[in-house]
Design a protein around this nucleic acid. Structure first.
Length: 111
RNA sequence: UGAGUAAUCCAGGCAAUCGCAUGGGCGAAAGGAAUUUCGUUUCAUGAGGAAAGUCCGGGCUCCGCAGGGCGAGGAUGCCGGAUAACGUCCGGUGGGGGUGACCCUAAGGAAAGUGCAACAGAAAACAACCGCCGCAUUUCGCGGUAAGGGUGAAAAGGCGAGGUAAGAGCUCACCGGCGGAUCGGUAACGAUCUCGCGUCAAUGCAAACCCCAUUCGGAGCAAGACCAAGCAGGGAGGUAACUGCGCAAAGCGCAAAGUGCCUGAAAGGCGGCGGCCCGUCGCUUCCCGGAAGGUAGGUCGCAUGAGCGCAUCGGCAACGAUGCGCCUAGAUAGAUGAUUGCCGAAUACAGAACCCGGCUUAUAGGAUUACUCAUUUU
RNA sequence: CCGGGUGUAGCGCAGCUUGGUAGCGUGCUUGACUGGGGGUCAAGAGGCCGCAGGUUCAAGUCCUGUCACUCGGA
């Protein structure tokens, strides 16, 4: 079964990128868009610049865990793309969470 | 005690809270039922020794056949065994290295043929530059000679004696080489000899072409099958009769170059790609049409397998046989993470994607076994 | 998953077929010509031929393994 809260289609990605609404922090870059749905959708990306498969998995897991802890504060109805930067590998989960929280605040989605 | 050789094993553990995936349970809804959908955190399970590189070998699937054919090409290459198979593994032989435990070894054929051997050197494979000897002689020269010099990575078995004009396996002893016989061994090969060979006619390279032996069809799970939606295309074989080609030939084989014949609704041609046929793509001729092909939407393929553990037996071993027990990831943008505490020297390389057998490479720290050498003590 | 290509001087590339001398352009250094720059000319330096083994008398070249980069296809 495909999960509905995961961004999957190529057109969704190109639409979000075309809006060029993004905020960058030390560890992650966030692209976002309103989707007019009763739930939020998100994607966690780690390119080959981050490292080999172990490092990329590590980066995505850190972002997932951080997002999970922030999920209650975020109102539904947004699409997110989280892109890992290479600096994320040496950091702890708490640091990633702080950076992500600050980025989303700057985007004006939470206060 | 120190130095070393060979091999095996582990790959942080435990507890608590939150979170993820798969499967089960429970609850709810739909349905006659099988079943399907939703919810729940109640239970179980949840990456590796290399999951990696994709270098070999298989299973599986499709390609008409699949244990295809051939003129091309690839791979392997001491002997025997193991195995589903292998370029892997085990045991041995020859060669090389180490005081030793032990390690390394692409190790068939160079009188089947072709080719190459820079520079130096007279000459690099039918050898005469210097030298030596004989003849001739003013000089030039003619002939014999591979013992010596010199060059080179390599110079036509070594060494001694006889022999000779000077020399030469020219002759002889010893050593080496080639062959034969006997014995041992499945074999590679080894040992031995009142045995034969001085035509011992001749260097190296085959990881140069090549020859010989063995072996290999192609593509890959995005293979492929089904469903839903959707729309326009699909098809053309055999026969060795004649020429031709392959094998030394009788004869056999090749439908792949041409001719003919048969069957058929129809039996042509051009070009591109893969060694060629076969196939495939595009255009065209002919024939038949509602049957065939394709697509990241879904389902299956997809985890019970050359499986793992223990015991016994056979085998030097790789491995095999029998019995008992066990079920152990299965995602589809892709599940293992976070926080805290304790133990602690405490973490390296690294993440399954159809599945197995190997090889290779990366790797912190630790444990164990057997053996060797040196030193000291008894 | 499948297939191909490239690693040689600071940079861009030849040389590998058929093994024996490592070369070209540009850049660098020095000198000359010019009042100076540019330019031209002359001389010179700079290479463990990606790494590790092997074959060979001899390896950038042949063979095997390995590492990195890169391109294409499904």
């Amino acid at each position: 079964m495909l999960k509905a809260d995961v961004l999957r289609k190529k057109e969704d990605f190109t639409n979000i990128y075309r809006r060029e609404r993004s905020v960058a922090s030390k560890f992650v870059v966030v692209f976002y868009r309103k989707n007019h749905l009763p739930y939020s959708r998100k994607a966690f990306l780690a390119s080959k610049k981050v490292g080999k498969s172990v490092q990329r998995n590590r980066a995505r897991r850190l972002m997932k865990e951080s997002y999970r802890q922030l999920e209650n504060q975020i109102p539904p109805g947004w699409d997110f793309i989280f892109i890992a930067r290479q600096t994320i590998l040496d950091s702890k989960c708490a640091d990633v969470k702080k950076a992500m929280e600050a980025a989303i605040k700057r985007a004006g989605i939470i206060k």
